[in-house]
């Protein structure tokens, strides 16, 4: 019964300028510019390159975590244990070094510890697929921190900056540019490439949209979740090393609140916690936006509680805007007309 001519389906995408302006990233870049203009007008020294990089370096330590966190949120999962993983990894680093191990070994131990923490989260969540990531990682969040506290108690473990190369990890610069910034950029490109240009990245989005469809499409859903959670742990290990290099001493209660900061950065970047949506450049922009906003507010001596409130408010406003638009489109005014047939 093929009497009709088969239709032609085109590959060209419709491009409209309007949608470009309404896009999330446009909004983000706007916010980013506003924050910078504000900071520059507050402090004359703000645009001094050396100062700026000093400021940037401090928030890059936790900014790393937003990269794999973006993957986790795209998957539709969440990981609340990152702060505790950083604390435990840094604790082990300090303790191993002070027990006489070479710093190189201590660094490897920190990386292994972080990776193991992530792997444990991943194994629990992929063996028992009904469990919610929110609850499991809430559990490991207290568990990992508890172990760190058991090891250190109320003590701190310090002297880490006595090793020159370890000190240089955070503080050394290439010209005016800190190495941590360069590493950050390299990782950002790598994580962005994997998410947007590889099959792995596409699978993350597919799983985030529908685990069932992904499973039926032959995608190894649980293996990909396991890899992603392990990756988060590994990056937490990196973050722990930079933290130790930056601070020089470690206590069990460091890095508290990292989980919420990392999640805020990703969500502000346009990746929804519902999974399957958003893109990576947004995350990178928002890492800098949040980081610099905090720095700028610090410059005018706003206390840290107020800073948190302001960031919370901005997060809510920015996340709400696209929803207002959607609802407006849905609720169009209608005028009924009466006519008899």
């Amino acid at each position: 019964m093929t009497t009709q001519v088969k239709r032609n389906i085109v590959i060209e995408k419709e491009k409209s300028l309007k949608s470009l302006f309404l896009r999330w990233e446009t909004l983000l870049i706007l916010l980013f510019v506003v924050v910078n203009v504000m900071n520059a007008s507050i402090s004359k020294n703000y645009l001094n390159t050396a100062n700026l990089f000093t400021a940037i370096s401090t928030f890059l330590v936790k900014g790393f975590i937003a990269f794999p966190m973006a993957y986790i949120l795209v998957l539709g999962d969440i990981d609340l244990s990152v702060g505790s993983t950083v604390a435990l990894s840094a604790t082990l680093l300090g303790v191993s070094y002070n027990a006489g191990l070479p710093m190189g070994v201590a660094v490897v131990i920190a990386l292994l510890c972080g990776t193991l923490c992530g792997l444990i989260n991943g194994i629990i969540l992929t063996k028992f697929t009904e469990l919610a990531a929110m609850i499991v990682t809430l559990g490991t969040m207290t568990l990992y921190r508890g172990i760190a506290e058991m090891i250190l108690g109320s003590q701190s473990t310090g002297g880490l900056q006595n090793v020159t190369w370890f000190y240089n990890l955070y503080y050394a610069r290439l010209g005016a540019v800190p190495y941590i910034f360069i590493i950050f950029c390299v990782l950002a490109i790598a994580f962005g490439f994997v998410l947007h240009k590889t099959t792995f990245g596409r699978y993350l989005y597919a799983i985030g949209n529908s685990r069932v469809v992904a499973h039926y499409s032959g995608i190894p859903v649980q293996a990909i979740r396991l890899i992603s959670f392990t990756l988060v742990g590994f990056v937490c290990g990196i973050s722990a090393i930079y933290y130790a290099s930056w601070a020089g001493t470690v206590r069990f209660d460091i890095a508290t609140g990292y989980e919420l900061e990392a999640i805020s950065m990703v969500v502000l970047g346009g990746i929804s916690t519902a999974g399957g949506k958003g893109n990576f450049p947004g995350t990178v922009i928002s890492i800098f936006t949040i980081g610099l906003l905090k720095y700028g507010l610090g410059l005018i001596n706003v206390n840290s509680q107020t800073i948190l409130m302001i960031i919370g408010a901005i997060l809510i406003v920015v996340v709400t805007i696209p929803n207002i638009r959607v609802q407006k489109n849905a609720a169009k005014a209608i005028k009924p007309a009466a006519k008899r047939c």
Binding site: Q4, K6, R7, I9, V10, I11, K13, E14
Partner: peptide, 16 residues
């Protein structure tokens, strides 16, 4: 995707 969609005659304008 275009070829496969056309082979089963999906009523769509673009593959997007």
């Amino acid at each position: 995707a275009k070829q496969l969609a056309e082979s089963v005659d999906v009523k769509a304008v673009t593959i997007f």
